[in-house]
Design a protein around this nucleic acid. Structure first.
Length: 592
RNA sequence: GGUUCCGUAGCUCAAUGGAUAGAGCAACUGCCUUCUAAGCAGUAGGUUGAUGGUUCGAUCCCAUCCGGAAUCGCCA
C-alpha cells in the first residue's frame, strides 16, 4: 500500500505543480494512534515546489490522492491523514493468515552473505559478552535469511597464539595433570582456570621485579613466565610434537565445553575456521607484500604496515621473532573466506573495542593489497556488556559466566512458574518449558537493546520475566494458542472470508495495521542489522493484542462474522509472534 | 593527549528530521463465580548533559563545552 501511495503522490505532485518530485519513503508513515487515519503524508517537503501555504497544499494534495486511491482524507496542520476502508484491512488479514511463513521473503538468487560471529578464544570459557555476540550473530543470520538472502554463518576459532600458550604453560606448571574428568570441571572452564592462574603468577613476578627496582614497563616485558610463554609460542609455530600434543589436548577439552554452550544457546555454524589453519596464509600474504615493498621491515626484523597517509598509524604485522599477530591472521582469513564463498558481503560481528582493528584491516585490504573484496567486509560493531562496576575482564576473573547465567535463568523460570502455581504439566513438559522461558528471557534481554549501544547487566538483579520480556510475548502466544484450540474444539471455521458488511473498531483496526507492518519490520531489521527492531515490534504487538484480548470475550462474541474476524486477528498475531521470535532464536510454547 | 562512540523519567531501555518524547522495572490505586492475572486499566515521574547554529520543524544534523566509555600493545 505504501508503494501505491508513493506512486499516486508522485503523480499528484506532477499534475498539480508540474514537477517531478522524488518521494522519500519517509514522507509516508503510519498515522499516530490518537488521530483518525491509516497513513500520514507530511506535506512540508512539497512547499518548495507548491509555493502556497501549508493548509492549501495539504488540501489539494489530499483531494487528488483520495480520488486516486479511493480513500478518505483529513488534513491537520501540515499532515494529510488517509483512511482506507475496513474491507482493505480485512482483505489483508484474510490473505495472510494461512501463510505460516508470514513476514518472510522468498529466497533471492544472489551471492551469499557470510556472517562471522562467536569467534571464541580457546583459553577461557564464554561469558556474557560472548553471549551477546553469539545471539546477535545468529539472530542476524536468521533475519537476513528471512529477507531472502543466502546466508552462511561461519565461526573463526582463535585456537592459537600467545594467550593459549599462557593457559598451557600454567597448566604444565601448576596443573598436576588435572583433567575435566579428574576435576569434574567443564573443559573450557578448566582451561580458563589456568589462564587466570597464569595472570596471578605473572603479576606476582612483575611485582617482585619492580620491588627489585625495575620499571613497570620493563618488568611486564621481562617476567620469566611471559618469556616462557613466548618461547612456547615459538615452539608451537615450529610444530614441536610435545607442544602440539598438549595444545591439542587442552583445545579438545575446550571444544567439548563450547559445544555444550552452543547447544544450550541453539547456535550452529555452516563452517568453522581455525586460526591455526589460516594464520600461515596471512603470513605468506604479508611476506609477499613485503617483497613488493608494500609493507616495511624494521631493523629488529618486525614487519609493519604504514597507514599514516590514511590518517592512522603504523601497525605491526609480524613480530620480531617471526610469529604472527591477530592482524596477520585476519588478513589471511579474509582472503580464504572470499575464495571459499565469493560473498557479496562479509559481516564480522565483533565488539566495538576492535573498531580500530577493523579500520586497519579494511585499509590494508583495500588500499595496500588492492583486493576487490576489501570493500565488502563490514564490521558489525556492537557495544560492551558492562557490570555495575565496569567492564568484564577475563584475566581478572570478573566475568558473568555464560553457562552459569543460562543455568540461573532456567532456575528463575522454574521458581517463577512454581510461584504462580502452574502445575498442569508433566515433568518433561515442565523442564522443556523452563528452558524455553529462561533462555527466551536471556536472549530477549540481550537482543532488545540496540547492538551499537553498550548495555548494563546487574548480576544482583535477576533478569525480569514480566513486562518487556520474552515470557510476556511467549505468554501472549500461549494464550492465543489455547484460544484457537478452544475455537477449533467448538468447530468454529474462522478461516473463511468474513461477510463484507462487517465493521471493525478503531482499536481492532490498529492491531491489523500493526500486523500489516511485520514484513516491513523484518526488512528494516535486515537493512539496519538490528534485531532490537524486531524485539521492540513484537512487544508492542503483544501488548496491543493483550489489550484487545482483555477487552473482547472472543468466544462469547454473539455476532458470528465478528467472531470470525477476531479469531483471524488472533491467528495472524500468533503467527507473527512465533515467526518474529524465531528470528531472535526464541521459541514460543503452545501452553504456559 | 589524539581518534571514535555514548549522555533521554529514580533504574533499564524506545523514539526512519515530523504532530502532545514513549515503554518496562521500582512506587501507588483498581480488575480473576476467568476465551490462562507471567495479564489488563489507571496515578505519579522529563528544561532529552549545557550553550549556540542549520531548518517550516531538532532527542536526532553541525559547532563548542561538560561528563562517561573504548582505543591508540611485539594481547586478541
Amino acid at each position: 500500500m505504501e508503494q501505491k501511495i508513493t506512486t499516486a503522490l508522485q503523480e499528484t505532485i506532477k499534475e498539480l505543480y508540474k514537477t517531478d518530485f522524488a518521494i522519500d519513503a519517509k514522507s509516508i508513515q503510519r498515522t499516530r494512534k490518537d488521530v483518525e487515519g491509516d497513513f500520514t503524508i507530511v506535506v512540508f517537503p512539497f512547499l518548495k515546489v507548491a509555493k502556497k501555504n501549508v493548509e492549501m497544499v495539504a488540501q489539494e494534495i489530499g483531494e487528488k490522492l483520495s480520488e486516486k486511491l479511493s480513500c478518505q482524507y483529513q488534513v491537520i496542520k501540515g499532515f494529510i491523514n488517509l483512511s482506507f476502508p475496513d474491507e482493505y484491512w480485512l482483505h489483508f488479514l484474510g490473505n495472510s493468515l494461512t501463510n505460516s511463513n508470514f513476514g518472510y521473503k522468498e529466497k533471492k538468487n544472489e551471492k551469499p552473505i557470510v556472517i562471522e560471529y562467536s569467534s571464541p578464544n580457546t583459553n577461557k570459557p564464554l561469558h556474557l559478552g560472548h553471549i551477546r555476540n553469539n545471539l546477535l550473530g545468529s539472530s542476524l543470520a536468521k533475519i537476513l535469511t528471512a529477507c531472502g538472502e543466502h546466508v552462511l554463518s561461519v565461526n573463526l576459532v582463535n585456537d592459537r597464539g600467545i594467550h593459549i600458550c599462557k593457559s598451557m604453560l600454567a597448566w604444565q606448571k601448576y596443573g598436576n595433570n588435572e583433567t575435566p574428568e579428574s576435576s569434574g570441571l567443564k573443559g573450557d572452564h578448566l582451561v580458563g582456570k589456568y589462564y587466570v592462574e597464569f595472570n596471578l603468577h605473572y603479576k606476582d613476578e612483575v611485582r617482585e621485579l619492580m620491588r627489585q627496582g625495575m620499571s613497570q614497563e620493563e618488568a611486564e616485558k621481562k617476567a620469566p613466565l611471559l618469556l616462557e610463554a613466548q618461547e612456547l609460542l615459538q615452539r608451537w609455530e615450529k610444530g614441536e610434537p610435545v607442544v602440539i600434543e598438549l595444545w591439542e589436548k587442552m583445545n579438545g577439552w575446550v571444544y567439548k565445553g563450547f559445544e555444550e554452550t552452543y547447544r544450550q544457546l541453539g547456535i550452529s555454524f555452516d563452517k568453522t575456521y581455525y586460526e591455526s589453519e589460516t594464520y600461515l596464509i596471512g603470513k605468506e600474504i604479508v611476506q609477499r607484500a613485503l617483497k613488493d615493498n608494500i609493507f616495511i621491515k624494521k631493523s629488529d626484523n618486525s614487519v609493519w604496515v604504514d597507514l599514516r597517509d590514511e590518517g592512522l598509524d603504523e601497525k605491526l604485522l609480524l613480530r620480531s621473532d617471526g610469529t604472527s599477530v591477530y592482524m596477520t591472521q585476519d588478513i589471511g582469513t579474509a582472503f580464504l573466506r572470499y575464495e571459499d564463498f565469493s560473498a557479496q558481503k562479509m559481516i564480522y560481528v565483533v565488539g566495538n573495542e576492535q573498531n580500530y582493528h577493523f579500520d586497519v584491516l579494511k585499509l590494508i585490504l583495500t588500499k595496500k593489497l588492492n583486493t576487490a573484496f576489501g570493500n565488502s567486509i563490514f564490521h558489525l560493531s556492537y557495544g560492551m556488556v558492562e557490570l555495575p562496576e565496569g567492564k568484564m575482564k577475563s584475566r581478572e576473573g570478573t566475568v558473568v559466566d555464560a553457562d552459569d547465567l543460562i543455568e540461573e535463568m532456567i532456575l528463575q523460570a522454574r521458581k517463577s512458574s512454581e510461584a504462580l502455581g502452574k502445575n498442569d504439566f508433566t515433568n518433561e513438559e515442565a523442564e522443556k518449558l523452563y528452558r524455553l522461558i529462561g533462555l527466551g528471557a536471556l536472549k530477549y534481554f540481550i537482543l532488545k537493546v540496540d547492538p551499537k549501544k553498550n548495555m548494563l547487566f546487574n548480576p544482583n538483579e535477576s533478569i525480569d520475566l514480566n513486562g518487556n520480556t520474552a515470557p510476556f510475548i511467549q505468554y501472549s502466544y500461549a494464550r492465543i494458542a489455547s484460544l484457537l484450540r478452544k475455537a477449533e474444539a467448538l468447530n468454529i471455521n474462522y478461516l473463511a472470508k468474513p461477510d463484507s458488511t462487517v465493521t471493525i473498531s478503531k482499536n481492532e483496526k490498529e492491531l491489523i495495521k500493526s500486523l500489516n507492518e511485520f514484513p516491513k519490520v523484518i526488512e528494516n531489521a535486515g537493512e539496519q542489522l538490528n534485531p532490537a527492531i524486531i524485539a521492540n515490534y513484537l512487544f508492542e504487538l503483544a501488548k496491543d493484542f493483550n489489550r484487545f484480548y482483555q477487552e473482547t470475550p472472543i468466544l462469547k462474541e454473539p455476532e458470528v462474522e465478528k467472531q470470525k474476524i477476531y479469531l483471524q486477528m488472533s491467528k495472524l498475531t500468533s503467527i507473527t509472534l512465533k515467526n518474529g521470535m524465531a528470528l531472535l532464536g526464541i521459541e514460543v510454547p503452545e501452553k504456559m
